[in-house]
Nucleic acid binder design. Structure first.
Lengths: 175, 175
DNA sequence: CCTTGCATGTAATGGGTTACATGATTTA
DNA sequence: TAAATCATGTAACCCATTACATGCAAGG
């Protein structure tokens, strides 16, 4: 049930916006942390409106509808932030494969881990470069988005280091 | 489509087993990396059988059916391991909240991060303790499961460090 | 004999992905 | 005037979760 709060949160931070505006945000920033597609966004806007957590505040050209968070919506957002325990989805496609690497030859298993290490190294560098380029503003989404981005960088680095360690563990077993 | 390969992989590693056997594996080891419930397991066994990737190899008491991987199934497992790029699900409930911490008072935001750091620290310790206790065997699932567990430990540690760093970043901004 | 564990299945519901479908407005 | 962008919506399908439903077998 977190898509609901992603939409609610964005509308709260942006002081309102259209479904199209939200989609842009999902595409270029929030989506790295919680992805959503167009169908989902419009669907959720409808449900949130029906539940009274947001409302249409203006209508523009091309059928554009601008939404704003209601008092009830703000309350729900705070409740979610403060009271609901974030529960981790235990699903990792890379790690699932690791469990079954015994089905491959040892050198293929090592190559898999090497591939992960390289991939993660690449991504960590890309993120680090991006981090240097961006001019962070002083608004909430910039301040907290920056924290999230640093998390991403550390995550990639950690995964790279682990994959290299794991590759060496397998090499050590070969004797 | 990875549940399919989780089931296929387990049957390959265990040299066959029943739905019940697989559920046990999901509960106590594989589930930390790819979770699945009873309905899913039995449903997937049916689909895999219909597609010829596994087959019933024996029937036991209480309607027990033992499944084994077919040649086609083994082929599909290798293909998945070697050729399919693991794609990461970009969904993290903890981090999603971080984006919207600006909706809280600064001290509440810091408390959220502190809570995460504590939680992760606790889990990292639990995992480290578990790691020390387990007698790892020499079978594939033990060898590779050990790698996955070390990943979990490092992951928790990284998250703890990040949450502490983020908390300090917020404190530094207060001036 | 009673509890625990073994064992399988189905139905309802909700969320996510992909594809389809349409059209207005701006800009080059 | 053509292409790009803005803008919304629906339908079909698949996957995951929860709940329901049943019954046999082994051990204390």
């Amino acid at each position: 049930m977190s898509l609901r709060h992603a939409v609610l949160g964005l509308l709260a931070e942006l002081d309102g916006g259209s479904g199209y505006d939200l989609m842009k945000m999902f595409e270029l920033s929030l989506g790295n942390v919680w992805s959503a597609n167009q169908s989902q966004v419009y669907g959720e806007l409808g449900k949130l409106t029906a539940d009274g957590l947001i409302q249409v505040t203006a209508e523009g050209p091309r059928g554009r509808k601008e939404y704003g968070v209601t008092g009830e919506g703000r309350e729900e957002l705070r409740r979610w932030l403060l009271e609901e325990e974030p529960k981790q989805a235990r699903r990792d496609a890379t790690l699932l494969r690791v469990f079954f690497l015994g089905q491959l030859d040892p050198d293929q298993a090592q190559a898999y881990l090497r591939g992960r290490a390289d991939d993660m190294g690449r991504r960590a560098e890309e993120l680090a470069a991006l981090q240097g380029q961006i001019d962070w503003g002083d608004d909430n989404l910039s301040v907290y988005g920056r924290l999230a981005m640093e998390y991403g960088r550390r995550f990639m680095a950690m995964r790279r280091e682990w994959a290299e360690w794991a590759e060496n563990e397998l090499k050590a077993r070969e004797s």
